[in-house]
Nucleic acid binder design. Structure first.
Length: 569
DNA sequence: GCCGTTTTCGGCCCGACTGTTTTCAGTCG
């Protein structure tokens, strides 16, 4: 998409202008870049429809930047960018990724030592050349080397589902300290972003020194820096960094609001505060509710704080009542592996049932792969009916035991290249519900893939489309689809879109969830569990739904079994 | 370069920390 490419250029222009010491323009380009990144529609489409006028309506885009967007669309380049780049021909993306290196440092490194990229930088640092620069020293050189090491090792961000369980253990330890009066997670982890950069803890304590000492002696800490009275940072062996901040109880609310972010949300809230005639900082307010109230806003859930319209919605009293973490009545996507080993599968189903009861679910749905996926021992028609029979019996047994849980029998069938389903309609019709998903031939062109999925939706037995875009976070891109067209077809056919809670999938992503909700398309949050403990991934699906502004009415497994089944095809 | 319920000029989020200096610029969140 053009948006991401242009956004990247604008980010770089911002850095290059800062190198040139130009005032205020860098922020303008930065803002425009962020606006473009958040945009779900291709700017080319917008330009073709509404010309420069509609481009100028985009956030952060005025006449000058609109003209640059058009220049890029027409010629594939932006002249001013190329001129700036000629003056400072360095790999900005690589160098700014190094912690502690910004525009001014890049400029000096290039002018004095001709450093253009990460390789040059590492070589110069190893040769002891950095420390001889003015305003640099041994410490700065050491920090650069360590940052490069960290970059090489961690490759950036961690999956929410991989990091949250570990962090919760640490959180518990901190909370149990008698010196800790109050504690909260902050940052992107509190906002439940799908990937997390680093971990932030916010603590109220009268003895910060003791808390800091405990923090730096946690098992797994391999590096400590910035140890002060209010803040300390550590690096963990697993490769991520953690910050802890201690504040006074009377400032907990303002600090929590501030350190939860996002940065964009904070900038916007501070601007709002200024319009009301006062300054917002991280001190002096006890609760977050009061912080928002002061600016004339209702409380905004952390998952909504991305400056994607939540402030405007709050001002107009139009914030959604997003779904809660306790609102789920069941999970419809659990694999028993019936085709691989029936006896094991029976045990597996019993485990799903046990966990579903523990999680207070009203229903749990077994949906094994079907025959096209031989590698997953997918079930054929006969096996599906056999499994259905078994589940019917198990339901009767549960009923006799006076257990309210209902087991549903579905499947996750394959959408073939032509959009047909690999199981016959007669069999599909006998199941409680049918999920269908794309599991092969991901590299189709956009039109074909869109047609393929829409044809599957038109099958009167297909109730749910699983992991619609097929992405695997940090591993595989989404396949190309026309999402708007698919939404229209989903609405027409009454097909439900899945929000897959599996940590590497989280598919639909937040912006797509929001679009689906706006289009009136219903969704279901499923874990895609391949073992019973994975049913606990539900939390990540819920957070994703919350980040997509979804409400209970949008998510069919927030509903009773009766209502939910009643709305399927 | 963008923006506007003090709107076409004059502002632009704000504070902590670092490493280098000896008073502060740069970076970060």
């Amino acid at each position: 998409m053009n948006n991401q490419e242009i956004a990247k250029i604008f980010h770089e222009i911002a850095v290059l202008l800062e190198i040139e010491d130009v005032a205020f323009k860098p922020q303008a380009y930065e803002k425009a870049a962020m606006g473009l990144e958040a945009l779900s529609e291709d700017v080319e489409k917008i330009y073709k429809r509404g010309g420069i006028k509609e481009l100028e309506e985009l956030p952060g885009v005025g006449k000058g930047i609109a003209e640059k967007i058009i220049e890029y669309l027409k010629t594939g380049k932006i002249k001013e960018y190329q001129q700036l780049k000629k003056k400072t021909p360095v790999d900005i993306e690589e160098l700014t990724a190094v912690e502690g290196i910004g525009p001014k440092t890049i400029s000096i490194l290039y002018k004095v030592l001709s450093i253009k990229n990460l390789k040059d930088l590492e070589r110069a640092a190893r040769a002891g050349k950095i420390r001889r620069l003015e305003n640099f020293g041994e410490k700065s050189e050491q920090n650069i080397l360590e940052s490069i090491e960290f970059l090489k090792r961690s490759k950036g961000r961690f999956l929410l589902g991989e990091i949250l369980p570990e962090v919760r253990e640490i959180y518990k330890k901190l909370k149990n300290l008698k010196e800790v009066k109050k504690i909260s997670l902050a940052g992107s982890l509190r906002r439940m972003k799908e990937t997390i950069g680093d971990i932030d803890f916010l603590v109220v304590s009268r003895q910060p020194e003791k808390v800091m000492n405990f923090f730096i002696s946690l098992p797994g800490v391999i590096k400590i820096w910035g140890k002060g009275a209010t803040k300390t940072s550590v690096r963990m062996r697993q490769g991520y960094d953690m910050d802890i901040r201690v504040v006074a109880g009377k400032s907990f609310g303002s600090a929590l609001q501030y350190f939860t972010g996002s940065k964009e949300h904070n900038i916007a809230t501070r601007k709002l505060a200024m319009e009301k005639g006062f300054k917002l900082n991280e001190y002096g307010i006890k609760t977050e509710e009061e912080v928002y109230k002061k600016i004339g806003l209702p409380y905004i859930e952390p998952e909504l704080r991305e400056n994607t319209g939540e402030l405007e919605a709050g001002l107009r009293g139009k914030l959604p009542k997003i779904i809660g973490y306790q609102d789920i009545c069941g999970d419809l996507h659990c694999h028993s592996h019936w085709g691989a080993d029936k006896n094991k599968a029976i045990k597996q189903i019993e485990n799903f049932v046990r966990l579903a009861r523990e999680m207070n679910y009203e229903y749990v749905g077994i949906s094994d792969h079907t025959k096209f996926l031989a590698i997953e021992h997918g079930l054929d028609e006969k096996q599906l009916l056999e499994q259905k029979k078994f589940i019917d019996k198990l339901n009767q047994k549960l009923k006799i035991e006076n257990c309210k849980l209902k087991i549903l029998c579905g499947c996750e069938a394959n959408i073939m290249a032509d959009g047909s389903i690999d199981i016959n309609d007669k069999t599909l019709a006998k199941l409680d519900y049918v999920i269908a998903g794309v599991h092969s031939q991901f590299k189709m062109n956009r039109e074909k893939m869109t047609e393929r999925i829409i044809r599957a939706m038109r099958n009167p037995n297909v109730d749910i489309i699983s992991h619609l875009t097929g992405r695997i976070i940090q591993q595989r891109d989404e396949y190309e689809i026309d999402f708007d067209k698919i939404l229209k077809a989903a609405k027409e056919t009454g097909t439900i879109l899945e929000i897959n809670a599996y940590p590497v999938r989280l598919d639909l992503k937040d912006s797509n969830i929001r679009k689906a909700k706006e289009a009136g398309v219903k969704m279901v949050i499923n874990t895609d569990s391949h073992q019973s403990e994975q049913m606990r991934f539900m939390e990540y699906g819920i957070s994703q739904a919350r980040r997509g502004w979804a409400e209970k009415k949008d998510i069919i497994n927030c509903w009773s079994a009766e209502k939910m089944l009643g709305m399927l095809k």
